[in-house]
Design a binder for these strands. Structure first.
Ligand SMILES: [Mn+2]
Ligand SMILES: [Mn+2]
Ligand SMILES: [Zn+2]
Ligand SMILES: [Zn+2]
Lengths: 151, 151
DNA sequence: TGGATTTTTGCAACTTTGTTGCTTTTTTAA
DNA sequence: TTAAAAAAGCAACAAAGTTGCAAAAATCCA
């Protein structure tokens, strides 16, 4: 961290928001930063905890919705009613997400990861079913937790 | 529900609950029946609507939890924070669900179906990741909606 | 079948999560 | 620098989920 008013990263984040057609505000910068710092995905309540009292709950809801709309983040399905979000790294556009990667939920550290290099398989469906999108969620033990245990 | 008349189905449902080691109550019979009548999966609120004022909300929560624990139903992941449930038709045991099938969410009728004949693909993961379970959720247009449109 | 024992239910009170309308503040663009 | 537009904060509300406890029902056994 330099002593100057703006680090490079802050400038980058601001630029990135502008490129998506969004005005640059403290909460958007902060939430974007949280996603960038984070290896795993974040839920609403994760963000609330990490952001502390800095922002109103409502602002977080609205920011997440905006980021979803603009194709900045995507929602990751889960079976426990707690949706998590992660940055889109493909070129997702406003109104259209295009993700081919799968997600991994670690039962040990309870983090969810985007495995960007693992492409979703094509699924053979019964006659009449028209697929538009495939979500794959693998549960197990993640890389970090596996190697941590070994040593 | 406790009249003198018992249909075959009612007896079957009671037997089925007993086999799972559960006592037979009105709410469990009713909720079990709803799942059996239904082609698609049911959310908590679906059940609340269909059951009307017959049961307390809390009873529905507890019944769903019990059915999950006993391996009678399974939870289906979704990206919109509304978990749906469907009957297990494999031999799921208390404490252990074993499902190999995929799920299909129809964007037109908003129903979720178990495609019991479509087996989950095996996914090649990066080194260090240990998979234990694979959930596949395909979104698109279901068979019913496709054929309905054609005619 | 009756009645003690165990289990489940309903209720109330509460927490958490999510939504909406409105006012003030901040950001943007001229 | 200022006017217009957008976002944030606030409050009030609605929906979803949890917990403890007393009443009701189901099970068990003599
Ligand atoms: Mn992802
Ligand atoms: Mn299923
Ligand atoms: Zn892990
Ligand atoms: Zn359909």
């Amino acid at each position: 961290m330099s002593g100057s008013k703006h680090s490079n990263k802050t400038i980058e984040i601001g630029e990135s928001l502008k490129r998506k057609g969004l005005s640059v505000t403290d909460s958007r910068k902060k939430i974007m930063q949280l996603f960038m710092q984070q290896k795993g995905a974040l839920s609403h309540s994760d963000i609330e905890k990490k952001a502390g009292t800095a922002f109103d709950r409502v602002t977080i809801y609205r920011t997440l919705q905006t980021f979803l709309d603009k194709g900045i983040i995507h929602a990751i399905p889960s079976a426990d009613a707690s949706v998590r979000y992660a940055l889109c790294n493909d070129d997702c556009a406003p109104g259209h997400h295009e993700h081919q990667h799968i997600h991994f939920f670690c039962r040990q550290c309870h983090q969810t990861f985007c495995l960007d290099d693992i492409v979703t398989p094509s699924i053979g469906l019964p006659r009449g079913y028209q697929p538009q999108e495939v979500d794959v969620l693998v549960k197990g033990v993640c890389k970090n937790c596996t190697t941590a245990k070994k040593s």
